[in-house]
């Protein structure tokens, strides 16, 4: 067992976990933060996306011990106009992929703001990349939505990206 601490949604949490426990299971089963979802447990669906020091990762493939002393934000710690945009644009149906989509979108917007390119960026050396619908779709492709709310999700992100951010 390993005694670790991590900052989760702003508060320091003490955890006593085996090294094999994933960050996802630590959040869901140890801390009761069930907003972060498990869809595949192998990095293929994005439902478990959380932000670590502001960067999006798949928490199912992260061992909790590897993230000791880091700053984790889960959906429970997110309070962003993007969430209202998701509701208004109906970027959700069953709701199960939604927390992952929202955390991923927040991480993605930060990546874009930092000037990172994507697989559909025509010139990867460009400094400023317009966040078109095509760019959003590519950058969000790590988050599956089987209900097919993709249009609403993209619209919500566009609205959020277009506002004061």
């Amino acid at each position: 067992m390993a005694d670790i601490r991590m900052r989760v949604n702003g508060s320091i949490e003490k955890l006593d976990v085996e090294p094999r426990v994933s960050l996802l299971d630590a959040l869901r089963e140890h801390l009761g933060l069930t907003g972060t979802k498990k869809g595949c447990d192998q990095g293929a669906c994005g439902a478990c996306t959380v932000l670590v020091d502001g960067e999006r990762i798949s928490s199912c493939l992260a061992l909790a011990v590897q993230y000791a002393d880091r700053d984790i934000t889960t959906i429970e710690g997110v309070s962003d106009p993007l969430q209202e945009s998701f509701v208004r644009h109906d970027g959700l149906q069953c709701g199960y992929c939604t927390p992952g989509q929202i955390c991923s979108a927040l991480g993605m917007l930060a990546e874009h703001a930092a000037g990172m390119a994507s697989a559909v960026t025509e010139h990867v050396a460009d400094e400023e990349i317009e966040l078109t619908a095509e760019e959003i779709r590519e950058r969000m492709s790590g988050n599956l939505c089987r209900c097919g709310s993709y249009n609403g999700i993209v619209a919500a992100i566009q609205e959020s990206a277009g506002s004061a951010r």
Partner: peptide, 17 residues
């Protein structure tokens, strides 16, 4: 707007597990 939209967008909706 769907009545449970906010529950789902905040992670508060609880599923079977």
């Amino acid at each position: 707007d769907r009545v449970d939209g906010t529950l789902k967008a905040t992670g508060a909706a609880r599923y079977a597990a």
